[in-house]
Structure formats: structure tokens, C-alpha cells
């Protein structure tokens, strides 16, 4: 009961903070002079992007943990983190594309940052996609763990490679104090949401694994008794 209260409390706080951040964005935060109202996408974009990296890092750590200890819960954690990473990276791509459409008039340009998000998204979507195609749970955990580690090591190289593309992005934006405060406030609900989703996804994976193990046990238990072997007949 106590635990349930805690979970409900956590989600209400997260939702309330999210709503408060949206309210702050519209009522308090000033509009950036050169870019206009579309710059306000930034307050969502940046915390989501940073949390994407954190989720990828959790995949990396959990993958190492699995290869080290060979405990299935590490795999469940890595899978949950992979889902959060893909979800957050999708939001990064989406907000980035909308911003690009407003700023440059096209939904997609091969600018370094957009390409970087796209490659990162592809890397971790593949992580989720390959899992169902491997039947044995041990092999699935092992291959995804190796993939998770290599994918994370890949990220800095993706960054270096996209830097070779021609860039039209603004180098950096000077933020007024009120804008900085808004970014900081936005970090709260976004990070809490990531943690909540990670925990919920982890619990769901544990549930599914429990069920599949229980089903396996039932198959063993309900199997017809083996016919007596010759030795037993003799006895």
C-alpha cells in the first residue's frame, strides 16, 4: 500500500511539474529577439537531448553488467533504458525538425546535429528491433548486451563524423537569466519522467519474464508422466 502511494505521488508530482513548466513557458519566459517564439522549443529540446544520452549510458552500463554477472535483470534494465532512449531521441528529432521547418523552411537538412540525432535514433531503434528476432533469452541478452556496448562506443564517432558535414546551425545562443531559469525548471519534469518510464519499463520486463518462466514451468509440470523405463519395470 505504502509503495503504491509512493508511485502515485511520484507520477502526480511529475505531471504537476510538467504542467507548471508549460505554464511558466507561456506566461513567464520572454521571447527571444532574433528567432522569435519558435526559439521556445529549445526549453524542451535541450533537457530531452541530455536525458537521451543518460538513457543510452544506462543501456551501456546495464549491458556491461549483464556480460559481467549474467543476471537477467540487467538485460531487463537495458531493454527498458533502450526504450526510453528511443522515445526521447524521437522527441529530439521531432522538435528539431519542427524548429528546422520554421527556421529554414524545410523539414530536413543534412546539418550535423540533425544527422547526429538521426543516426543515434537508428542505432537504438535497431537495438529494440533485433531483440524479438532472437529466440533464446540468454542469447538475446548476450547479443543485445554486446550491441549496447558497441553502440555506446559508436556515439562519439558519430559525433566526429557528422562534424564533417557543412553546418548552418547557429553556433550558440546567449540566454537571458529568465531563459536559463526556464531551462533549469524544464530539466525537472523531463528527468523525473525519464526515471519513471525507466522504472515502469523495467517492472514490465520483469513481469513478462516471470510469466514466461511460469509458463515454462507449467509445461514441464503438466507434461504426461514419462513411461517407465526398462530399469523401473524390472524393479
Amino acid at each position: 500500500m505504502n509503495r503504491k502511494c509512493l508511485v502515485y505521488g511520484f507520477w502526480s508530482v511529475t505531471l504537476a511539474l510538467f504542467v507548471a513548466s508549460v505554464a511558466m513557458l507561456f506566461l513567464y519566459t520572454p521571447i527571444e529577439k532574433t528567432m522569435g517564439p519558435v526559439q521556445k522549443i529549445f526549453y524542451l529540446h535541450l533537457p530531452i537531448a541530455i536525458n537521451t544520452f543518460l538513457a543510452c549510458f544506462v543501456v551501456f552500463i546495464a549491458s556491461i553488467g549483464y556480460l559481467w554477472q549474467r543476471k537477467m535483470w540487467w538485460d531487463d534494465l537495458a531493454f527498458a533504458a533502450g526504450k526510453v532512449a528511443v522515445l526521447y531521441c524521437s522527441v529530439v528529432l521531432l522538435t528539431g525538425m519542427i524548429w528546422g521547418k520554421s527556421a529554414w523552411g524545410s523539414w530536413w537538412t543534412w546539418s550535423p546535429r540533425l544527422t547526429f540525432s538521426l543516426v543515434l535514433w537508428l542505432l537504438f531503434v535497431v537495438y529494440l528491433m533485433i531483440r524479438p528476432s532472437i529466440d533464446s533469452p540468454q542469447r538475446r541478452a548476450m547479443i543485445s548486451a554486446v550491441y549496447g556496448i558497441v553502440a555506446f562506443i559508436d556515439v562519439p564517432f558519430v559525433y566526429l563524423s557528422v562534424k564533417l558535414l557543412p553546418d548552418i546551425h547557429p553556433a550558440s545562443i546567449a540566454l537571458a537569466p529568465a531563459m536559463k531559469l526556464t531551462v533549469l525548471v524544464w530539466f525537472l519534469p523531463i528527468t523525473l519522467l525519464a526515471l519513471g518510464l525507466l522504472r515502469a519499463g523495467y517492472l514490465l520486463n520483469r513481469q513478462i519474464r516471470t510469466e514466461s518462466q511460469r509458463n515454462q514451468n507449467m509445461v514441464f509440470e503438466s507434461a504426461p508422466p514419462a513411461s517407465p523405463t526398462p530399469m523401473e519395470e524390472l524393479a
Binding site: G36, V38, V91, T95, I98
Partner: peptide
């Protein structure tokens, strides 16, 4: 669409995805 509409589109679609 103007900048403000794009901004609102971004927030609505992202919130819909996340939640």
C-alpha cells in the same frame, strides 16, 4: 504557419508522445 504555431505544434506532439 508562423513561429508560434510551430512552437505549439512541437510541444503538443512531444507531450503526446511522452505521456
Amino acid at each position: 504557419m508562423n513561429g508560434e504555431q510551430y512552437m505549439i505544434l512541437a510541444y503538443v506532439s512531444s507531450s503526446a508522445l511522452l505521456w
